[in-house]
Computed example of a mutant assay.
Amino acid sequence: MGHRERLDQERGTLEEELAQARGEAASVAARAAQLERSAALLTDAADAARAAEDAAQRLKEADARLSDAAFRAGFDTPQAAADALLDDAAHRELQRSLDAWQHEEAAVRAVLAEPETVAAAEQPPAGLAAAQRAAEDADRGVREAASARDAAARRCTELDRLSARAATSVHRLGPLRDEYDQVARMAGLAAGTSADNERRMRLESYVLAARLEQVAAAATVRLRRMSSGRYTLVHSDDRTGRGRSGLGLHVVDAWTGRERDTATLSGGETFFASLALALGLADVVTDEAGGVRLDTLFIDEGFGSLDDQTLDEVLDVLDSLRERDRSVGIVSHVADLRRRIHAQLEVVKGRSGSELRLRGTG
């Protein structure tokens, strides 16, 4: 085949392809414009299809999120959640309730945060049985307390009645109380316990003090002779160690001119001061008894504490008593007295016992 034939054949093929490509269009250009418009429409359709697909996917995802939110909110379906929507008034009421709950929650949290609450929370749980027993005990205690309160109320009523009676009795006893106060005051003065009795001297002490003054005056007569005029006994109403007064004796020392307690006397001085008091008491008793005499006087020991001069003075005083028809007996172991006293009753020890011997004629 020649070159011309091939070209003709190729042209025929191309015309056939061109006819197919042109289709029903008037020209190839018209067909190209038509195809371009179709391509644009297809592109728009593809874009719309992709957008619809994306919207469907987003809608599906939104439905899933909506269903999940409705489920978490406690609804079975989104429609049930929609049906539960509230109006504005109900919403405001719920909001106020929510605000109140939040405020209460904050207060509770504040209490729970306190150290005492935290410490209480750390304690082990209470036993229910023990708590029940405690509650029963508490109930029983309440009942007992109520019973005791009623009993106390009855007692108060009785006390009010008794108080009224006591007040009436006190009113009636008023005059007796005044009389008692006077008697008690006199008794306190007599007993030396009253504040008005400054020296706390009992009545019997006061009476005895008068007699003691007489005894001291009578004893001084002989004490001056026994002490060569040095000592004088005087009555003292100074308080003693227990705070009372009335029956005290002091001695006045002529050598110092001072008055002092008889406790400061020596042993011998105490002896002849006591002897002088005994003799003074005998004189006072004789005077008080209407002249009844104490004819016999015994003196036991004490002479050993005297020096020779004092012993002589004491014996002179005792001799003066004998001159008045009084018997004076001396119990002593002092040897010098044997020479001074002629009438003696001696006690002699022996194996078979003691015996008495009478010496002298007195």
Rank of each mutant, 00 (worst) to 15 (best):
G2W: 06
R6P: 02
D8N: 10
E10R: 15
G12D: 14
T13N: 10
E15W: 04
E15P: 00
E17V: 01
A19G: 09
A25W: 00
A32Q: 12
A33G: 03
R37S: 07
A39W: 03
L42V: 05
L42Q: 14
A49Y: 13
A49M: 12
A51T: 12
E53V: 08
E53C: 07
D54V: 06
A55I: 09
A56P: 03
R58Q: 10
L59H: 14
A62N: 14
D63C: 15
G74I: 03
G74S: 06
G74K: 05
A82S: 05
L85A: 08
D87P: 05
L94P: 02
S97Q: 11
Q102V: 15
H103F: 14
E104T: 04
E105F: 10
V108Y: 11
V108Q: 11
L112Y: 03
A113C: 14
A121N: 13
P125Q: 09
A126D: 02
A129H: 15
A129D: 13
Q132A: 14
D137G: 15
A138Y: 09
D139G: 04
D139K: 15
S147R: 10
R149T: 08
A151F: 05
A152D: 09
R154K: 07
T157C: 10
D160A: 13
L162Y: 14
A164Y: 08
V170W: 04
V170I: 06
G174K: 11
P175V: 04
L176N: 09
L176S: 12
D178P: 01
D178M: 13
D181A: 06
A184R: 03
A184V: 05
A184H: 06
R185E: 12
M186I: 15
G188C: 03
L189D: 09
D196M: 07
E204S: 13
S205G: 15
S205F: 05
V207S: 07
R211N: 12
E213H: 10
E213R: 08
T220V: 00
T220H: 00
M226G: 06
S228P: 02
Y231L: 05
L233Q: 01
L233Y: 00
S236E: 01
T240R: 08
R244P: 04
R244I: 12
S245L: 03
L249G: 03
V251A: 00
D253I: 08
D253S: 11
A254C: 05
W255L: 12
W255D: 12
R260M: 14
D261A: 14
A263L: 11
A263V: 06
T264Y: 06
G267L: 07
A273I: 02
L277A: 07
G280I: 00
A282P: 01
V284A: 01
V285D: 02
G290F: 10
G290I: 02
V292W: 04
L294D: 00
T296S: 07
D300A: 09
F303P: 00
S305E: 10
V317M: 08
V317H: 04
R324T: 11
S327V: 05
H333G: 05
H333W: 07
A335S: 08
D336I: 01
L337F: 04
R338M: 06
R339G: 12
R340E: 01
A343C: 06
A343E: 01
Q344G: 04
V347S: 13
K349Q: 15
S352K: 14
G353P: 08
